[in-house]
Amino acid sequence: MYFDSIIAGFGGQGVLLMGNLLAYAAMEEKKNVTYMPVYGVEMRGGTANCTVVVSDREIGSPIIHSPVSAVAMNLPSLEKFGPRVKKKGLLLVNSSLVPEKEIRVRGVDCLPVPSRELALEAGNERLANMVILGALVEKSGVVSLKALKKALYPGLDVRYHSMIPGNQSAMDKGAEFVRNGGR
């Protein structure tokens, strides 16, 4: 079993947390995992992306040029990482922020996710990142949704643990969206 993903967006969209949670979930399932953050030079408001590699064998490079999957939370991320996804790979795009006409990547399984709308349904539009993460996990099967939800405990600071149920229902929303065929 081998899986990797580049998760990218603006700083503040919570992409590093997404990567961290995925890593914790993989660890929970006793898989090998690496998480590699890449920040813009500026501390805030810049672009952020991270790479997560999950495998049942020893992981070599934590840095991947052509990933098996990618998550683009905004247009610049789609433009940068979309074309790098491996053939027959998986690309999740935040269609709440990226106009439909821009989402054209050939040779990959591309899934637009209206994350903000789904997050609103879950009760908090700021949980858009959790929606997409739930969709990524459901679509790829890299870890179980259960492990992902559990990852919130070690992944979030204790101060935010009261928000775990909200985060979990946002993850459910994303997974449900995938199960319903991306609608």
Binding site: T34, Y35, P62
Partner: peptide, 9 residues
């Protein structure tokens, strides 16, 4: 820098 920033179990 790579080793310092990378997270692993």
């Amino acid at each position: 820098a790579l080793l310092g920033q990378m997270k692993e179990p």
